[in-house]
């Protein structure tokens, strides 16, 4: 019973964070572009996301005539559900993990890739050429970028000697944060994570100026909201994963600051990496699809391999 209650609390907390994330996203983009961002709904526009959500919920549920109906309905759920599932293995604070799985990192990577299925299914089911191209791009992109992502995470696993995310954080408590020995791995992971999240400069699957809206073209209302929700939850989940793997999770930057609860440190780190993509989005244009593949296969994967070998050598001889 407490586990179920915990899950509900988690869901609510994450939903709250996502609401906040959308607001921060729009505010930050606004400020970086000389605008104010949302100002009209609630004090400082704080209720903007709620207004948007309500608007999406009360929209007519449009299913175009030519779509594959079961798949069209299923796709948003496939895309959205895993985003919450992965949060279960994230260690928020000492002892605050909803499922302390032995192979936590592997679980995260495996479940996260299910979302791609939802995207492909949605793009296919919509029976729209833009959706299809978007979905295929997404498939190619995910396949390419999961490799460097996993390879660079693997180096962290080597360092910690465990796939369990709690153990990885504890290993960092004994030595230093892994971002220092794994600086190269961190950069690779960050780039690959951006591609996984479909954020600028790798937002090719919904590249507005090219593909109208990619796989989302035919989606509206609640279904669209589900895709968006999934996307923002992933943003937070990925931030949490980066914080866990490379920045010591709940650990304070210095033992003298240990009086601040671990969850605060964790949230600061995770939210920083969840917000970072917004800044990149405000600055960078979109890469081209062939350049993206080239970067993954010719750049990141060899580098990640080198990083892995170096880590192994470091681990063996030091």
């Amino acid at each position: 019973m407490p586990a179920a209650l915990g899950a509900v609390v988690l869901l609510l907390v994450v939903l709250g964070l996502v609401t906040f994330a959308v607001y921060v996203h729009r505010k930050l983009l606004g400020w970086m572009q000389g605008r104010h961002g949302p100002t009209h709904t609630g004090p400082y526009g704080l209720l903007q996301t709620i207004a948007d959500t309500v608007k999406l919920l009360q929209k007519e549920d449009v299913i175009p005539a030519q779509v594959d109906r079961p798949l069209f309905r299923l796709a948003p759920i496939i895309a959205f559900a895993p985003s919450f599932v992965v949060l279960a293995v994230i260690p928020f604070a000492p002892g605050l993990t909803f499922a302390d799985v032995g192979v936590g990192l592997l679980f995260y990577l495996a479940v996260a890739s299910v979302t791609t299925l939802g995207v492909i299914a949605g793009g296919w089911a919509a029976n729209n050429k833009w959706s299809l191209i978007g979905a295929l791009r997404s498939a190619a992109q995910m396949v390419s970028y999961e490799v460097p992502l996993a390879l660079s995470a693997l180096a962290v696993v080597l360092m910690a000697g465990s796939l369990n995310l709690n153990a990885i954080v504890e290993a960092q408590a004994r030595s230093v944060w892994f971002v220092i020995p794994q600086a190269l791995g961190f950069v690779i992971f960050l780039i690959a994570a951006l591609a996984e999240l479909n954020r600028t400069p790798f937002d090719l699957t919904e590249a507005e100026s090219e593909l109208v809206a990619g796989y989302l073209t035919e989606y509206s209302g609640v279904r669209f909201a589900f895709f968006m929700l999934g996307e923002y939850v992933y943003l937070f989940a990925m931030g949490a994963l980066i914080a866990t793997l490379y920045f010591g999770g709940w650990l304070p930057p210095h033992p003298a600051l240990a009086f601040v609860p671990g969850i605060v440190w964790f949230l600061i780190k995770a939210l920083f990496f969840a917000v970072l993509p917004f800044w990149l989005q405000a600055t960078f244009p979109r890469a081209r699809v062939d350049q993206l593949m080239g970067l993954a296969w010719k750049g990141l994967i060899p580098l990640a391999m080198v990083n892995l070998v170096l880590t192994a050598a470091l681990k063996t001889w030091l």
């Binding site: 000389g34 590249a207 600055t283 244009p285």
Partner: peptide, 16 residues
């Protein structure tokens, strides 16, 4: 043009 390339901010700077 930068909007076509996927960068959103230059558009607003240019319009400013």
């Amino acid at each position: 043009y930068l909007l076509d390339l996927g960068a959103i901010t230059p558009f607003l700077y240019a319009f400013r």
